[in-house]
């Protein structure tokens, strides 16, 4: 299936870009005129994925995060990728309340939020190479 529209952006792993990324993703999806709830869910899931890339992928060092959005007639696919340290144990990382950074008061809910707010979530990761998150959301119309 060909997407109706597509965009890709890249930005530095600075925490100020968390807001940038979720606003850009929601603005792009807004052209399909989905419900407010769908846009709110996408904003939240993107915020979690980008924060994970910044905090865990790069451990707050500087790196590149990419975000690609593919808009289809009935759903959107969002791919967020970093080229940082990767995840050794994806199952453990996805466990609710598990976090490697309690010092930052990370609640360990990032993947749980992405899974709850989106319709699908796939995580590909290789230690030393980076992590790619692929999420989809059905577009319910208002």
């Amino acid at each position: 299936m060909q997407p109706i529209n597509r965009m890709k952006t890249e930005f530095l792993s600075k925490s100020s870009n968390e807001a940038f990324a979720r606003v850009v993703a929601a603005s792009f999806v807004a052209q399909a005129d989905p419900s407010i709830d769908v846009l709110a869910d996408i904003r939240t899931a993107v915020s979690e994925a980008v924060t994970n890339a910044i905090v865990h992928g790069y451990d707050d060092t500087e790196g590149i995060v990419t975000m690609e959005c593919l808009l289809y007639s009935d759903h959107v696919e969002i791919i967020i990728e970093d080229f940082g340290k990767g995840i050794k144990d994806i199952a453990q990382a996805k466990t609710p309340l598990f976090t490697t950074r309690p010092d930052l008061e990370r609640s360990g809910m990032g993947f749980t939020v992405m899974e709850t707010f989106m319709d699908s979530l796939e995580v590909e990761s290789e230690p030393g190479k980076g992590t790619k998150i692929r999420m989809t959301k059905q577009l319910e119309y208002r």
Partner: peptide, 13 residues
């Protein structure tokens, strides 16, 4: 107006 899981961490902390 917006909160992700960082807000949960902020409240619990």
């Amino acid at each position: 107006t917006f909160m992700d899981s960082a807000g949960i961490g902020l409240i619990l902390g």
